[in-house]
Design a protein around this nucleic acid. Structure first.
Lengths: 200, 200
DNA sequence: AAGTTTATAATTGGTACCAATTTTGTATCC
DNA sequence: GGATACAAAATTGGTACCAATTATAAACTT
């Protein structure tokens, strides 16, 4: 048996990301074990994992709950992301190999194509792949994982963000610009682009 | 009963920080429940909490283990801290109230005093209080908590770091300089000081 | 009728035990 | 003697049940 708890943690994180749970609601253990068809121990373990990563809240004797959307934590977590990702822009420029740049170019173009004609449910994944690949150029894997966690904390309901066509088209254009900045190793420009991209 | 698991998680984190466990070793659940005098459920929950925060490692069917010291993750996590803390230097200068600055001055002086004559086991705590207070000037509580976690990830055996007298004296001097930079709102200088302070 | 108290239900936290996996020690084979 | 196969012990993962706490509903008081 391949560790139910880890699987449940992943599925739960994914469901949280895609807004399957109403913000601020309680994640009751009995509901979750019914939803995912497992016992209570795996559910508890998964909940505790996500609480440790601060993807969900925990209150003693009350349980685990989804972050409220109106929480101003969102803005603050975005500010953290800006600090980290712009702080690493120099490392990104220095560390990016030719292969990584071409891969980024490919992902940026793929994103643009999906914007025009592709399945919208792949937008998020492609966008995620782009940013993961970009950050991985720094060679700092813990940072990549940390930003992944932060991303999950900021977008409890990302669906609404991907409906504005004008916005995602601008995102696509910014991706291209980022790759250009990375190619010519203009870390200041890259930092500026990243900041705008996150805070938009 | 006030949630054993949370207490155990705190104690375990503290013991990890103070180097009570040999790096890379396995944190066996039976040992821990004997050590802390609790059942297995609280131990498991505490372990999972810390694993979620990546303070310890987890391997399926093998358990939880202390991070190895030689791990180059240490350097990378330090790099993350530099990005975050320097990235917030402007926010620190903007957000610092007069009360916070005087409190920081007090903590910096207290640290200097302990260096000269005080109990060494308070050095770490005072240093921690100084940096927490400093970061809290940004008004970004999630960032303060995040850096707390990162700090626990970087110093698996901090004891050795606090034995070098010359070094902690320099730390004390740097604290004073940081408060000065904060007072005159020289964020560039503050950022430079923070970088040096972390990477020293 | 509104507020408070009390009783009931729902929910989480913990304990004890069993199953599955990994580790360790031992015997066997070459 | 060293490598391999196998058995025993140790360890983690999961299930079922009970205790403690919180939430909900009903009864009571004024």
């Amino acid at each position: 048996m391949s560790d139910d708890a880890e699987i449940i943690a992943d599925r739960l994180a994914q469901d949280l990301r895609s807004g399957q749970f109403t913000a601020g609601s309680w994640l009751k253990q009995v509901d979750l074990q019914a939803r995912y068809g497992v016992g209570r121990a795996p559910v508890r373990k998964a909940l505790e994992t996500l609480a440790g990563r601060r993807l969900i809240r925990y209150e003693k004797n009350r349980g685990y709950s989804v972050h409220p959307t109106d929480d101003d934590d969102t803005k603050q977590v975005l500010a953290i992301r800006v600090a980290i990702e712009t702080g690493f822009s120099e490392a990104l420029c220095l560390g990016a190999s030719a292969e990584q740049i071409t891969e980024l170019q490919r992902l940026a173009e793929q994103f643009s194509q999906i914007v025009q004609s592709g399945p919208f449910d792949q937008l998020y994944e492609t966008n995620l792949a782009f940013h993961r690949t970009l950050l991985r150029c720094s060679g700092n894997e813990p940072m990549v994982n940390l930003v992944d966690d932060l991303r999950l904390r900021t977008s409890p309901a990302p669906a609404s963000q991907w409906l504005n066509r004008a916005r995602i088209e601008r995102s696509a254009a910014e991706h291209i610009k980022m790759v250009d900045a990375l190619r010519v190793k203009d870390s200041a420009e890259l930092a500026k682009l990243i900041r705008r991209h996150i805070l938009q």
